[in-house]
Simulated scan of single mutants.
Amino acid sequence: MVTLAHGANHGLREEIKAYWSARAASFDSQPGHEIFSEEERAAWHRLLRRHLGEGEGRKALDLACGTAVVSHLLDDLGFQVTGLDWAEPMLELARSKARTRGRSIRFLMGDAENTMEPDASYDVITNRHLVWTLVDPLAAFRDWHRVLKPGGKLLIVDGDHVNPGLAARLIRRLSAFVARLSGDAAVQHGPAPGQMETHLSILSRVHFSQGARADEVVKLLRQAGFDTITVDTDMRAIHKAQRSNFSFLKGLERATQHRYAICASRS
């Protein structure tokens, strides 16, 4: 972990905000971000139900909601959803998507590490692919614990995007070799080539610069006051559904990565 002074933290957080603002335009075109099939949507619904149950009007806060993919999944299940993000271009797309689908989802601009939401105001908090970007995850987790009602649940969906296993590394090299051999450009699944340098610079300075392993996340959640923590690494149904939008090798690579859902409760 890189230790940063407060001023450096502020500068890094502004860089992160600008980076995700720049990613907004292409975000929904990339598999693994937007949902492209009803099979994948159903797999996400099953994951959310497994850990959070049906919404039944309970209040959910979707942190770093982006274009509101998870917000809409929660809305489908009957939660009363607030999506929070600090990138206005993301929120513009999120609001447009809600209008198109005729959904009543509340969107706020705000910082996922310091939500400024009232104490004990939500039954559920969710986030996807946020934790690896956190500058001060312990402070963020303490804030999320504060915002949850007693008995409320936090669901984190994330992974270690820094340390691919041996199988993933071999598949990645083979995929690059096949692309060179065929002369085909690789399908873009993450930052555009012009954004990769910024991505790597940010990654080198966040708390989980060495990879957001589930056990390290759980350790910090316990320090923040959460209990009854479960780690769910069974993402197979989601990965299987996503496979049709990836190349064969990319689909295999994703299936070998350390990805997980962590559910934690506030007593």
Rank of each mutant, 00 (worst) to 15 (best):
H129D: 12
K17S: 04
N127A: 13
M116D: 10
T133A: 11
W20T: 00
S104Q: 15
W44K: 01
K59M: 14
S96I: 14
G83N: 00
D28H: 09
W86V: 12
M109R: 15
L93D: 12
L108Q: 09
K17L: 10
G32M: 05
T67M: 02
P118N: 07
E88C: 01
H33K: 08
T115P: 03
H45K: 12
L74G: 04
C65I: 05
A18M: 13
E40I: 00
H33C: 08
G102E: 15
E40G: 03
L134S: 02
W86N: 15
C65D: 01
S104K: 13
S29G: 14
I105G: 13
L130E: 07
A24W: 06
D75W: 10
P118C: 03
R95N: 05
C65L: 03
F27L: 07
L84R: 08
S37D: 01
E40H: 02
E117V: 12
N114P: 04
E34V: 09
V131H: 10
V124E: 05
V124W: 07
R95K: 14
G83W: 03
L108S: 08
Q30G: 06
K59S: 15
F36T: 07
W20N: 04
R50N: 05
P31L: 04
Y19F: 14
S21Q: 06
P118R: 06
C65F: 03
V69F: 03
G66R: 10
N114Q: 13
R106G: 10
L47D: 00
H51Y: 00
F36V: 01
G110S: 07
I105H: 12
K97A: 13
G57M: 02
Y122V: 08
G53Q: 05
E15A: 09
S96Y: 15
A25T: 10
L130V: 11
A94F: 04
T126D: 00
D85S: 00
R101S: 12
S104F: 14
V69Q: 11
V70Q: 14
T100V: 12
Y122P: 06
A42H: 06
A112E: 09
A112R: 10
L93M: 14
Y122Q: 13
I35M: 00
L77K: 05
D85W: 07
D85P: 11
W44F: 01
E34C: 11
A25P: 04
A43Q: 02
W132A: 01
